[in-house]
Design a protein around this nucleic acid. Sequence first.
DNA 1: TGCAAAGTCCCGAATAGTGGAACAAATGTT
DNA 2: AACATTTGTTCCACTATTCGGGACTTTGCA
Lengths: 261, 261
Amino acid sequence: MNKQVTSDGTVGKALELLDMVVAFGRSVRFSEVLEVSPYPKATTHRLLQTLTNQGMLAFDDERHVYVPGMRLVRIARHAWNQSSLGPLALPFLQTLAADVKETVHLAQMEHGRVVFVEKTTPDEGFKTMATPGRRSPAHCTGVGKVMLAFMDDTRRAAALECQTYEAFTPNTHKSEKTLLPELAQIRAEGVAFDREEHEEGIISIAAPILGGSNRVIGSLSVVTSTFRMSLKDIEKFRPALQRTAAQIGGEAAVWPYPIAQ
Amino acid sequence: MNKQVTSDGTVGKALELLDMVVAFGRSVRFSEVLEVSPYPKATTHRLLQTLTNQGMLAFDDERHVYVPGMRLVRIARHAWNQSSLGPLALPFLQTLAADVKETVHLAQMEHGRVVFVEKTTPDEGFKTMATPGRRSPAHCTGVGKVMLAFMDDTRRAAALECQTYEAFTPNTHKSEKTLLPELAQIRAEGVAFDREEHEEGIISIAAPILGGSNRVIGSLSVVTSTFRMSLKDIEKFRPALQRTAAQIGGEAAVWPYPIAQ
DNA sequence: TGCAAAGTCCCGAATAGTGGAACAAATGTT
DNA sequence: AACATTTGTTCCACTATTCGGGACTTTGCA
């Protein structure tokens, strides 16, 4: 089992480029892709052509830009409905957000990183870095730490391998040294706190979503800012948070969602 | 230029399998994939492994099934927001549906086939069986014919190449012989009608959505059944339909959406 | 426990991907 | 309008990668 996995073969390279193009979040020119592509010009070009041929990208030959293609869009629609917790969890999130009157995040884990799947704000609150579809590191977020804490040992080991320990604030964990003990504590407590580890002024309380066989399939958090509440204050969200996480987990148990890894 | 495009290289094969797995719409076992895979067991297995490695699929090693992976889900979220007309057009669809009190379909074209992107029904929200993400032939649907009619000659030629002329009802076009004249007429009229060509009892009126440079990026239709209305009746939807299509096109003009092909 | 079916792995042959470099097209500049 | 520069596309010999028959291992069921 490859632990790091960067690319296997042409398929890996092509998907890497696809990911890059899509991640731009807008239409891109060939040269822009080339700049971030680790492959030589000819190769990059050919791979993009292949992806375009396959309908995963579309090339606008008037503006000379690449955009996600219809085939990807179609697959996207299926994959989203089928494998993201989003559609299933959204009603629960809304109830919770209305209940606690704070922002609620739903996340899943991809290869040691947190993917924000859905987000609900009760009012039009402040904005955080999290946007649905965005990826963040796991070591510095409530949703990330709680998933790490509750996944099984093998997966956790693999996920920890991928952590970069990038320091976003003074509170960010700098290495396993401090992270591992906290994970143990989170496991004991059942919830994780983000103590301004990703963004200054932003704190959260997070609970794991456990599917069948108690495997972690995602996590849920209530997010707020230090201007409005303290770490102590947000502890009161715990019952509602855990109840909602359990409800989502119950709904999801019958369906094999991807396991956090 | 490959006209049919079934596979270029490994990447094509891998994507083909990915498409198949996702199209199942549920978790699948290896043997199920193998059944529909055109490749030998060893190859199919290796490709699925690669996709799993890449996070495009996830393998549940407890239930021994493949599901769409987190990476695909993340890419999906991006691609959907960026390249489907769905998010942008949804409010307009809802207004139109409420206005005409009938079901409204939004479609885009992928390689000569119609992809239903969004669907709104006036009364009960948007909970219908015909899941968005479904593909249908173009020759027998209002949304399909109207896109064929308005796309440029090169693209139309390519798209027509892909038509199967499968006969769903007695009214379905059986060949270019009858389809081409109708396309000319649709071009002249500005709208297309589905005269029970896909499903008996189902009729629709469809208008093209034109983006920048008047290129077809999608289409819109009002759908109803012959039990409620006649072909003559639905002509009255034309003004609202065309107005909505123009509004969506206007919104979309500044952003390079994939062109119908 | 045993056996059929499902899933995984191996390795030589040959196909398909690679990327430097030349070419072409679009864009900018004098 | 002619030239320079940047951007995008094609070619082709080389070789790393994929292919897939078949053997092996694991799983599920009787």
